[in-house]
């Protein structure tokens, strides 16, 4: 089944790299995958958004109007893209930055204090991995968490052990939160 994930935040938060990692891990696990960044004139600090699709069948349209899952990393994009999450969808959000109340009752909302948790790990850049960890623990059909971890390892193969351990820890911390919302 086609799974659609919207990731949004501000430039520099790792929105696009999170999307690419997800797409790559889906591809590595034998699924079809597409990754579409929404580009603009902004750089750091501007808004960043991407759509990832994973599927067991070839992906025909890469442009869904609404997505089933949404990783939201900041308040600005939360306000902007709220209508792009499907009814019955799952919202995983950075509760340190998304300060608006979650008013929709037709979705599952998973608050993750990802900035705070990443800081505790010693690297604020790990926030995106924490959020992915939470989403994949809640909905394994997107990409099996084991596959994601393996792709993450491969992607960072040339980096220090420290960074790879940090990634694995971040993914697990997110997973511990997400698994309470598993179907």
């Amino acid at each position: 089944m086609k799974q659609s994930i919207l990731i949004s935040g501000s430039g520099g938060q790792g929105v696009l790299s999170a999307g690419m990692l997800l797409a790559q891990s889906a591809a590595d696990s034998g699924k079809y995958a597409s990754f579409l960044p929404e580009y603009g004139p902004e750089q750091r600090g501007g808004s960043a958004k991407c759509t990832v699709l994973t599927s067991d069948k070839e992906i025909i349209s890469p442009l869904p109007k609404k997505c089933m899952y949404w990783i939201c990393m900041n308040e600005q994009s939360f306000k902007k893209f709220g209508t792009q999450l499907k009814e019955g969808g799952v919202l995983v959000y950075n509760s340190n930055r998304v300060t608006s109340p979650i008013t929709r009752t037709d979705i599952t909302a998973i608050p993750v204090p990802s900035d705070q948790l990443a800081d505790q790990l010693g690297n604020p850049k790990a926030a995106n991995i924490i959020l992915i960890g939470a989403l994949l623990a809640a909905r394994k059909a997107i990409v099996d968490p084991e596959h994601f971890l393996k792709s993450l390892e491969e992607k960072f193969a040339s980096k220090s052990d420290e960074i790879r351990e940090l990634n694995a820890k971040a993914f697990k911390i997110g997973g511990d939160i997400g698994k309470d919302y598993a179907e």
Partner: peptide
């Protein structure tokens, strides 16, 4: 178009 230019696929 810019969409096909930016998209990643297999």
């Amino acid at each position: 178009d810019g969409c096909l230019g930016a998209i990643m696929e297999l």
